[in-house]
Design a protein around this nucleic acid. Structure first.
Lengths: 347, 347
DNA sequence: GTGAAAGCGCTAACAC
DNA sequence: GTGTTAGCGCTTTCAC
């Protein structure tokens, strides 16, 4: 019968074409299609053309999930930070993302809210996802917490927070600024301005806040000025807590004559409190902070800050991570980037 | 020989265990392990215990790449925006990320820099990655550009920019604010303050900027005031361009007596210019903007703004996206969220 | 130059 | 309740 064996293929309209369908339509094997598309191995010019033609016709797109399974890696890196709304992290994030794009990597964003459970949940998922690597500002800087991180055996770059004081060997890279030196610089600057009742609001629970505080203490020591312990507060990095701590300090019977905030969020809260109470800056109280955000140069008086090299931090982190992805056994490293004291009218 | 057939397995130390190894060690099949771990189907309590024990011993973690290939979906959603450093987008991003976390989804971040090529490259990759869905503030609002987006056949929610004027049917959800109404509100507010030489700096190339502008025009019309065309500028959303445009305007022989900036970045640049030239706000010039960022209440004078419900935008976008992932054929929708005029000292 | 075939790790019929 | 097996879509030996 003439109509016996006649098969018509209907393309399922919304289903995406597979490499197999491309191969059939082009009259070659899937191996050849794969070779042509990934531009690896030889193929006759004619074959190449045919493959590309069919690919265009069918609107074929490779399935990266299948590809990743086969080649046992992904091109996803994760950025694990406390809060992308924190201008410091969003600046770093922008730099990470921009450079990752150039290297053909994608960036998964994880906000931990400084919650250790949440952080570890994310890390577990990232491991299961076969993330190529992670850039993390870890919530806790304890040995156990770093051990957890290390046990994932994922290429890791730690930013913003140092693990110098962790007593296990970590095959990770660390990108930080010289927090102690920066704290010292800020303290010295205020001491030179003849302030000797310096107060401060520092990030709680992070080595970073602690180091910045220690820097301020060093400045006191070198200047021979005795710091007033009661004028220093350690709170979580929230605008509201900065506001509250600042009120506490300026409402004391013996308020400080200078105030340091150890990050941009605390600074915003503190500055709001100072404005609200109409504190005369810098005459009544000098004010300075870490993180040069959009607003610090805009307010009156403009705020003296330690400017962190956020773009460089992000870029260096990505560069180190990519090297580590290539060779996970690389020895750990520490990169200390320079920060800059920007003196403005508030001090 | 007694020593004949004796096989010893060495665990390759750093290689992660597979479900097969778990199955062997537990003396069950991979199917059972899978069932136990995904808590689907029945399993004897004894079996369950044994599986969990082995899982713990071997430090087994499921391979999501393999799983995703098999089940033909991922739990990754993408957030495609111009620039995560823009406070508006980082606020939306935070909300998206937070809610996605609760639903067990991960968020891939894509910065397009308002570059259409880059945007389309990202979209292609996301398609290849089998992203579950995308939340996007599209760079262009042309029909072709939306057609490209639609052809991906990915569940999509469009934020910040309306596609009301696109003449093809789009199975997408749209989450926006009433830009025209908000522009009208801001314009009316200034007109009530007896300003009749209002100028403005608006985002270039986006429907959003255009709509806000039109709202301002409407306010003029209703008030019977004729707007001065030369006092309106359309530029890309960059701080520097806001600064430049503002300088241009205030240095005219016939400068405006009020100025509107259509987003947070332009506002920051414009405000910087005003401060630099020591313009007396609001007496000499009233200033108002869209986006209530960290700095607008902090500067002196504090800035009158349209506050966008950034958290709600992010949350609603995720909710809609998840529904659409469940049922991609859902008809398109438009959600208009309310914005709020916050009057401060600058007007 | 190209094809056949194995297999990445997992889930889901289906059989028992 | 549990095991067998097919197969998701791709890359990569290994033949020829």
């Amino acid at each position: 019968m003439p109509l016996g064996i006649s098969v018509v293929f209907f393309a399922r309209s919304s289903a995406i074409a597979t490499i197999k369908q491309v191969a059939e339509a082009a009259g070659v094997s899937t191996a050849t299609v794969s070779r042509v598309l990934s531009n690896t191995g030889y193929a006759r010019e004619e074959t190449r053309k045919k493959v590309f033609k069919v690919v265009a016709e069918l609107g074929y797109r490779p399935n990266n999930v299948a590809r990743n399974l086969r080649v046992r890696r992904t091109n996803v890196i994760a950025l694990v930070v406390a809060d992308i709304e924190n201008p410091y992290f969003s600046a770093v994030g922008k730099a990470v993302q921009d450079l990752a794009y150039l290297y053909g990597m994608q960036v998964i964003l994880c906000n931990t809210d400084e919650d250790l459970d949440k952080e570890q949940q994310y890390l577990d998922v990232l491991k299961s996802d076969n993330a190529a690597g992670i850039i993390i500002a870890p919530t806790h800087q304890s040995t156990e917490s770093f051990r957890y991180l290390a046990d994932l055996k994922l290429p890791t770059v730690v930013i913003d927070r140092s693990f110098r004081n962790i007593d296990i060997v970590l095959n990770m890279d660390n990108v930080v600024i010289d927090n102690r030196g920066a704290g010292d610089a800020l303290g010295s600057h205020l001491l030179e301005r003849k302030r000797n009742r310096i107060g401060g609001i520092f990030g709680y629970g992070s080595v970073t806040g602690r180091e910045r505080f220690e820097g301020v203490m060093e400045a006191h020591e070198r200047a021979g000025v005795r710091p007033t312990d009661e004028l220093f507060r350690f709170v979580a990095a929230k605008e509201q807590l900065g506001y509250q701590a600042c009120l506490d300090l300026i409402e004391r019977p013996d308020p400080p004559d200078a105030l340091i905030a150890s990050n941009g969020l605390l600074a915003a809260g503190a500055y709001r409190a100072l404005k609200e109470r109409k504190v005369d800056i810098p005459n009544q109280l000098a004010f300075a902070s870490f993180d040069d955000t959009l607003w610090t140069p805009m307010v009156s008086p403009a705020v003296t800050v330690i400017r962190q090299p956020t773009s460089a931090i992000g870029r260096v982190a990505v560069e180190l991570l990519l090297k580590r992805i290539q060779d996970p056994e690389l020895e750990g490293s520490e990169t200390v980037l320079k920060s800059e004291l920007v003196v403005r009218d508030s001090t």
